[in-house]
Amino acid sequence: MKPAPFNYIAASSLAHALSLKAEHGDEARFLAGGQSLIPAMNFRLARPAVLIDINGVGHLAGVDRSNRAEIRIGALTRYRDLERDGDFLKACSLFADALPHIAHPQIRNRGTIGGNLSHADPASELPAIAVAMEATMRIKSATGERQMAASEFFVGVLSTDLQAHEMLVEIAFPTPKPRTGACFMEVARRRGDFALVGIAVVMTLDDARRCSTVRLALCGVGETAVDVSKVAFPLIGQSCTTETIEAVAAGVRDAIAPSGNVHASADYQRHIAGVLAVRAISAAHQRVRHAA
């Protein structure tokens, strides 16, 4: 299990990294935390000809909350840095819930937010969270930049809208509105394993404590993170009760088409999606009420 040969280039700046990518295109991969890419290379499932190490690139890491409307996370921000950022976790409780489920401390010390999202593993927690939080993905290339909604960024299993010459440089979440509660839950075989099913819920209540918006996204049950916010529409304008939540959970079960894997049958995944929907919506709702 040794990687096939490649050229390694430590990029000295963002511009350097982007120009290298422009030059080598699909032949080249960015090396961020390496926690998905290097295992794949050791198994020789990935054989990039050129590896552009972006770990030395400045200004790609960190949380920026200077703009009140949004929370920006640099692509090279490591899981561990977010775990240690109490203010951030308070503002984005989905991360607080989800980060401990992502692998183990040693991997969280290296793995990056941008690497995770670019890798686009449908069982990963973060794409679902990005979708639930209506994140914006900021993308750069040597020739320009663009941005797009998370829900459009993920296009298939391990595949995104990123073009051969592009880099994901930042993701930005709208700062949660007041009276917003959120919860991420998952079922995995062991702590740190990819989720068999995970669900991210973001819920905002109005003055009368009725739901004004509900965002629901799942991981592990489709080719990408699955946005099922639509099934929560009946909740809008309603208050959360056992019955309304059960109805949404039934909707979640119907809205997904999991394929099953070696650890879980498709039926089990569907069932768990419903169970987690009830639990996570209830918990998110509890949290808003406590906060309010």
Partner: peptide
């Protein structure tokens, strides 16, 4: 056994 299998068997 596994959670998934227990689900199938109880069902």
């Amino acid at each position: 056994l596994s959670p998934s299998r227990l689900f199938e068997l109880t069902r």
